[in-house]
């Protein structure tokens, strides 16, 4: 049900000037606060950084064990679930010396490529992974200078990421 609000325009309202002065007051107060009290909304980016959520999904990485061997077993689950089809895995048999803990990982990725330009950062790969191998870090500074650099290979993905970055 619509409510009809009838507002009477008084003479002062029709003059507009009082309303204009109110507007000017608002901007002047903001001016004063920003200039002298330093109350600004700006985040001065390279020095200050925005605090993102703990669940923020940023640049991918693959977790490694104590011997810097990737946890990935090339099960192709992430490649299958990926809606953007940005993951390409080529698997091979894992040599025995990479299984020191008795738990046999049969396969390993020869290549594990992620095309970050196609990735939509949905995090499905992370959820699908049975080994918690592929993860999304909280790093959002992914600017690169060439297209090739945005094409993450296994070496790049196995980099050390503390916590979730």
């Amino acid at each position: 049900m619509a409510i009809i609000v009838s507002r009477k325009e008084r003479f002062l309202d029709k003059l507009y000037i009082p309303a204009l002065l109110v507007g000017l007051k608002v901007t002047f107060r903001r001016f004063f606060e920003s200039l002298f009290l330093g109350r600004t909304m700006t985040i001065q980016y390279p020095e200050q950084k925005r605090e993102y959520s703990q669940r923020f999904r940023g640049e991918h990485f693959i977790s490694v064990d104590a011997n810097k061997v990737e946890n990935c077993t090339s099960c192709y689950l992430c490649q299958t679930v990926c809606p953007a089809e940005c993951i390409t895995i080529i698997a091979e048999e894992r040599p025995n010396d990479q299984n020191p803990y008795g738990v046999r990982k049969e396969k390993r990725p020869v290549r594990f490529d992620i095309d970050a330009l196609r990735c939509c950062f949905c995090g499905f790969c992370e959820e699908a992974c049975p080994k918690d191998a592929i993860k999304l870090s909280r790093n959002y500074e992914m600017a690169v200078e060439t297209r090739a650099q945005a094409f993450y290979d296994l070496d790049h993905l196995k980099r050390e990421v503390k916590g979730r970055g």
Partner: peptide, 10 residues
């Protein structure tokens, strides 16, 4: 800069 200050920016 003045416009920034009036809008709460730097």
């Amino acid at each position: 800069r003045g416009s920034a200050w009036m809008q709460g920016r730097v």
